[in-house]
Computed example of a mutant assay.
Amino acid sequence: MMSEETTVYTVLEVLIAITCCLGNAPVIWAVWSSSALREPTFCFILSLAVADFLVGFVAVPFAVLVDGQVCTSFTVCLLISCVVIMLTMASILSLLAIAVDRYLRVLIPLRYKKTVTERRSWLVVGSCWFVAFILSSPPIFGWNNQETSQSRNSTINCRFIKVIPMSYIVYFNFFLCTLTSLLVMAALYFYIFFAIQSNLRGRVRCGSTSHIYFKKERSLAQSLVLVLVLFAFGWLPLHIMNCIAYFGKESDVPRMGFHVGILLSHSNSAVNPIVYAFKIPKIQEAYMRIWRNLLMCRDYNQGSQSNQTTENNISSNPNIVING
């Protein structure tokens, strides 16, 4: 029987999963269906939204399973854990691709459209997911907690830390992948804002096209930095607790602390769509267009049903006379 803490954790995970799916599905639909959002940046935002959607649809249910809720073989538990890691890696690499894209828009504004095409952007998106798979696969190929060949086939109470070693989580997943990526992104955005501010100062008295261009770039960059900050806020507490448990003792961090860290990391995927909706005008417009189309379809269907009902009444009652 589950403890009260585990029950609360599971219920909150379910709520986060539903929010992730309901929030990111409109983002995916808006970007995919709108020709105005075919720019490279929005290809990467779409990739991030897909990763966030899969966090709710796949990673959260798997995370509940690898919290000791089921008994599986070592191999199955290991594969489930690696899927959770892969989706996190995909989010990080999508954020990194967005930062590099913003950097190129400021560094080579005149050559940007010829250099960063939609086709190349999709190739980068595919590369991000492929690299995410590669980075999450070391545990599958031996960097795991398997001690004997019998343990791979025997049934275990599936827990993430039973199959994934803390050395991989801390040194490889956090220090090498997550923290390095966050530092690179912070440096890129620092340069972006410095370059934009310098360009705006030079054109402050001029209403030129370049002045408007850099103002738009600054506004979008601010929104994307907010996404990055929320990602860091959501994931760093869990990684810090992992470091404390690894370099000290696992008992130094209470189980509830890990649960809070996991909930924070997953809730990050539910928050991103709110940022897109309130901070990025093009996605706002796409949302409004989708809603208008849905309302028009509803009104059309209601009108069709009303006309059909009228025709049925007339055909069923021959005494009705239509004046003409």
Rank of each mutant, 00 (worst) to 15 (best):
Q222H: 14
L220E: 12
S208Q: 00
Q308S: 13
L264G: 03
V229D: 00
R292T: 09
Y300R: 13
Y276G: 11
H266G: 09
R203Q: 08
I212A: 05
W235N: 02
A286Q: 05
F247N: 00
P237C: 01
H239A: 05
G202V: 04
S208N: 02
L294Y: 04
A270D: 00
F214T: 03
L295T: 13
N268A: 10
Y300T: 15
F233L: 11
G261C: 01
H266P: 03
G248I: 15
R203V: 04
Q284W: 08
N272F: 14
A221S: 10
P237T: 01
L236I: 10
S269P: 11
V225N: 01
M288R: 15
M256F: 02
R298Q: 07
V225W: 02
R289P: 04
S210R: 02
F233Y: 07
P237Q: 07
L295I: 08
V271S: 05
G207M: 13
M241Y: 01
E250F: 14
I244A: 06
V253Y: 12
Y276R: 14
H266C: 07
G303Q: 15
V275T: 12
K216T: 07
R255A: 05
G234W: 04
E217W: 03
K215V: 03
S265W: 06
K282M: 14
R205A: 06
M256R: 03
I274S: 01
E250N: 11
G234N: 07
S251K: 08
L294N: 12
K279M: 15
P237D: 01
G207H: 13
T209A: 10
S251I: 08
Y276I: 15
A232P: 02
E217Q: 10
P273Y: 09
L230M: 13
Q222M: 12
L295R: 08
R289H: 06
S210K: 00
Q284I: 10
A286D: 04
L238V: 03
N307Y: 15
R289G: 03
K282S: 15
Q284K: 15
S265H: 07
V271L: 15
M256P: 00
T209D: 12
F214Y: 08
Q308M: 14
C206K: 15
L228T: 06
H266M: 13
A277C: 12
T209H: 14
A270W: 00
L236D: 03
S306K: 14
M256I: 05
T309L: 15
R298G: 06
F258I: 00
L226T: 07
I212T: 14
S208K: 04
M256C: 03
N242C: 10
L220Y: 02
A286C: 04
V253F: 07
I283D: 10
K216Y: 03
K279G: 10
F247H: 02
